[in-house]
Computed example of a mutant assay.
Amino acid sequence: MSFDFSASLSRRFVLGLAVSGAGLLVCGGRVNATALPQMVVHRDPTCGCCHKWVEHLVANGFPVTVNDVPGMRAVKAKLGVPPDLASCHTAEVDGYVVEGHVPASAIKRLISDKPQARGLAVPGMPVGSPGMEGGEPETYDVILFNADTRQTFGRYREDKAV
């Protein structure tokens, strides 16, 4: 099953984002996202935190399509996500893979800087990362990865760089 999450937002929510300066433009009564690339998020249909992460992406201006996939291991293997970097959902954007609860600001930097890499990952499910709000926030690393290399792309607490 696939659906366009951006299209399912309420008009009030989208207009609230535009007024708050979240990267949306209101032109002639229409709401248009700025020029961020389409993201495709693959997730297990029973996962609730994935939905919250998608809300974070949309609130930060990304157009998002969600694919509910019962066999996420196969998706991760096909897209080249190393098992030690795995989390609950996997996304594709602008030729990159985004694994786990990566903040939108890190994804924007990735697509702007265009490093030679397979993608970004936040292994596990750190408390306080986008989609995992609640409880005492942890500081966590966003990892830039290729098949055989890894480096810290940024360190975050909640969805802010530290």
Score class of each variant (00 low, 15 high):
C50W: 03
A104V: 02
P82V: 03
A104W: 02
L25M: 06
A91F: 01
P82K: 04
K52P: 01
L25S: 08
V69M: 12
C50D: 04
D94I: 05
P82T: 02
V64F: 06
C49T: 14
C88H: 08
V31F: 09
F13H: 10
E99Q: 04
P63G: 11
V58C: 13
G100V: 08
T34A: 10
A18C: 07
G95S: 14
N32P: 00
Y96M: 12
G100E: 01
C50N: 09
A18Y: 00
V66C: 02
D84G: 03
C49W: 05
K78A: 15
W53Y: 08
P103H: 05
P83E: 14
V64K: 02
E92S: 14
H101D: 03
K52A: 15
H89D: 10
R30D: 10
P45M: 03
V54F: 09
A33C: 01
L57W: 00
A74N: 14
F5K: 14
A35P: 00
H42S: 13
P82D: 06
V102Y: 02
R30W: 02
D44F: 03
D94M: 08
F62I: 07
Q38L: 14
V93S: 06
P70L: 09
V98W: 04
Q38P: 06
L25V: 11
R12F: 11
G23M: 04
E92A: 11
A7L: 15
K76Y: 07
R43A: 13
V69K: 10
P63V: 06
N67R: 15
R73L: 13
V66N: 06
